[in-house]
């Protein structure tokens, strides 16, 4: 009982602490967007001279006739009431920002999970093996792998994978999220609910052919993202393994005569995982903002591309919306990680 309430209190404190951060981010976005060159209203008409009444109307509609401080307060109020506004960019003009984010987010989630899966499958075992065999050749190899793969430009790796598997071998599709026409759960098929994530939807639909298509499209981007991240994962896991292998409780276990394998894989690895989860969790949160370089390389329509498009087309409301959404996710996930950590290790709460 006491434990639960103090955890709740901790979670609340953390959440409240996250608010100012969100606030600063919002302010920065507001300021930067307003000093960007070019007038968003005139941009709508292109080079043509718009009729004066129309400009005035658009200004009023977007609230740009108000003094900056009023605009700012309206902006904050809208965001905190969940109103992200309506896009004013060339491409999405008139569509609600929220609906655009909603259509892009499932793609991003799929890619983030795919990338994390590959990164964990490759990175964590490598890190453990390296940590267990400190200063041997395996360790050196893993360290080199970790360093090198982590600094490879992700789009370059992506292009190479595309070239090899998509163009030369023709094994995997190199572009987009889908080949073919009927996406999972598209009519006439009926699904009880739809997530927008093609892998999940095809399973809901029970169509294994669709599932294979979805996975084949997800494979190359996930591999690209995952391989690069695996370098980071391996290094993080290795460092934490070293720390726990040298720690008192492993020494104690060793003194008790526990076999080396058991020490490493049961005691050290388990304890090393707590900080690793924190770091990797944050990485996951960052992936939710969209891996823009990977998305662009594989013409994969995720949140990153949406933000990129709205930056180049100076779609103010869209940039604001995506950034707010992104910040909210980061804050939520880091909050979840903190709370998770706190519930495992009560010392953190002190």
């Amino acid at each position: 009982m006491a434990r639960g309430s103090s955890l709740l209190a901790y979670a609340l404190t953390r959440a409240i602490l996250a608010l100012p951060m969100l606030f600063i981010l919002l302010t920065a976005v507001f300021v930067v967007l307003r000093i960007l060159p070019g007038d968003p209203i005139l941009a709508l008409w292109g080079g043509r001279t718009p009729p004066p009444d129309a400009v005035e109307r658009a200004r009023v509609q977007l609230g740009l006739d108000q003094p900056p401080i009023v605009q700012y307060l309206t902006y904050l109020r809208n965001i905190f009431t969940g109103n992200l506004g309506i896009s004013i960019g060339e491409q999405y003009r008139g569509t609600p920002v929220w609906s655009q984010i909603a259509t892009r987010f499932p793609a991003t989630v799929e890619l983030a999970f795919g990338g994390m899966l590959v990164a964990s499958l490759v990175g964590i075992p490598l890190g453990v093996v390296a940590g267990a065999n400190r200063d041997r050749w395996v360790d050196l190899g893993v360290r080199l792998y970790g360093t090198i793969i982590w600094v490879i430009p992700i789009f370059w790796l992506g292009l190479i994978l595309q070239l090899v598997f998509g163009v030369w071998l023709r094994w995997l599709p190199a572009n987009g999220r889908w080949t073919g026409v009927d996406t999972p759960c598209a009519p006439p098929s009926t699904c009880r609910f739809q997530t927008g994530m093609y892998t999940v939807d095809s399973l809901i639909e029970g169509n294994l052919g669709h599932f294979a298509t979805a996975v084949s499209h997800l494979l190359l981007p996930s591999l690209t993202l995952g391989l690069v991240l695996s370098g980071f994962f391996a290094k993080t896991v290795r460092a934490n393994m070293l720390r726990t292998i040298g720690a008192d409780f492993t020494e104690a276990a060793r003194a008790r005569g526990v076999p080396r394998r058991a020490i490493i894989y049961r005691h050290a690895f388990k304890n090393a995982l707590v900080p690793v989860v924190t770091v990797l969790g944050l990485q996951f949160a960052i992936l939710f903002a969209g891996a823009v370089l990977t998305e662009k390389t594989f013409s994969y329509q995720g949140l990153g591309i949406l933000l990129l498009e709205s930056i180049t087309s100076k779609d103010m409301t869209m940039i604001q919306g995506v950034v707010v959404f992104y910040a909210a996710i980061i804050v939520l996930i880091s909050l979840a990680i903190d709370i998770l950590g706190a519930s495992i290790d009560p010392r953190i709460r002190l």
Binding site: P173, A174, N175, G176, W178, T179, G180, V181, S299, Y300, Q301, I305
Partner: peptide, 21 residues
């Protein structure tokens, strides 16, 4: 008529190469 909107020219090429459309 089902019109698929693709993100890039490369995706279009892939579509017709595989005769997906």
């Amino acid at each position: 008529i089902v019109i698929n909107i693709r993100a890039s020219a490369a995706a279009l090429k892939q579509d017709i190469e595989t005769k997906a459309v």
